[in-house]
Simulated scan of single mutants.
Amino acid sequence: MSTRETRAVGRLLVAPSVILLFLWMIVPLALTIYFSLLRYDLLNPGMETFAGLDNYYWFLTDPAFSTALANTLMLVGAVLVITVVGGTLFALLLDQPVFGQKVLRLMVIAPFFVMPTVSALVWKNLLMHPVSGLFAWIANSLGLTPVDWFAEVPLLSVILIVAWQWLPFATLILLTALQSLDEEQKEAAEMDGAGAIPFFFYIVLPHLARPITVVILIETIFLLTVFAEIFVTTGGGPGLQTTNIAFLVYAQALLQYDVGGASAGGIVAVVLANIVAFFLVRIIGKNLEA
């Protein structure tokens, strides 16, 4: 069998999976675009009419959209800062030879495997509850007034919950990168009398540049769609203080029964996510080339 025939057979064998994957992605997207062009109210089924781009106009000019966009960017940015900085520190700590190192690594990584709904419930009822939560008990023990987290600082509360979930991921990636650091570089730095701070900034941090960019890219893609933590803890409130784009689309569809507006919001969210991903991929590509 010639090389050309081999390639043709290979493409033929791969074609069904490629077609299935393509349909898996394109059919929901096409239906969402179709619904976004209709006045589609769940309370009046069968009464759909063509709306053109009206749904997009009303969604983009809704004051809730600008608030949700700002909350989304703040949530993503804050969680990235916490996880990258905290992940680097934890990775440096776990890279040191300490007693019970394997158990310690397992405990640090464990939160990443907890379902978002479960972790949100744990934080809401066991840690941040203003009466019976652990933080309230600590505050009372110190003679301080407990903080009603989800009423006074709701967005910060959500940020802490999401960061707690993603911190193990960043730690695992950066720890793996640290363990690949050349031992000869470490020995040379020690022989030259390099201190801990110069060693970190001139050897460790450049070595972690690529893993950090990968962590930022992967986390950003998932953080743009945070929903369960908000739904379980604050329900998007108080007011719109914790409403992000994903929760706004949910509220439009299942609380206001406006499928057309929610579909338009979903397409807007897809476009925004692709714009962010495009620039992140370009930044990572330049980093890898360097």
Rank of each mutant, 00 (worst) to 15 (best):
T220N: 02
F99R: 15
L167M: 13
L106A: 15
V27Y: 02
A188I: 02
A188P: 04
L20I: 15
L288R: 14
D258S: 14
L175D: 10
I267Q: 01
F135S: 14
F201R: 14
V271K: 00
F278V: 00
F22G: 15
I284L: 12
V268G: 02
L272K: 00
K286F: 05
M74R: 12
Q256D: 13
L208V: 05
T243V: 07
T176E: 11
L224P: 00
L174E: 13
L160R: 06
L38G: 04
I283G: 12
T176N: 14
Q179E: 15
L254E: 06
V214C: 03
S17H: 09
F59T: 09
E219P: 00
V281F: 06
M191K: 03
P16L: 05
P206L: 11
V131C: 01
V276S: 00
E152V: 13
L92K: 03
S157A: 14
F35Q: 09
M1Y: 07
A78H: 01
D41A: 08
A188R: 07
E184N: 12
S2N: 07
A78Y: 01
E5I: 11
F227P: 06
M128K: 06
P16G: 06
L42P: 13
L142T: 05
I82H: 05
L174H: 10
R282D: 08
F222R: 06
T171A: 10
D258C: 04
E183S: 13
I275G: 00
H129A: 13
F135E: 08
A139L: 07
T49Y: 04
V122M: 14
A194P: 02
P16I: 08
V122C: 03
M47R: 15
L53M: 13
L21H: 01
V153G: 03
L37G: 07
A8L: 13
Q256N: 14
Y202R: 15
F99C: 05
T32V: 11
A246N: 04
A177Y: 08
F278Y: 01
Y34F: 12
A110L: 15
T72K: 00
T83R: 00
F22S: 15
A196E: 12
T72H: 00
E187F: 02
L167W: 08
G143I: 09
G265H: 01
T145K: 14
T117K: 00
D54Y: 08
G143L: 07
T176R: 10
A170Y: 06
S132N: 13
N71P: 07
Q96A: 14
L93G: 11
I138V: 15
L43W: 02
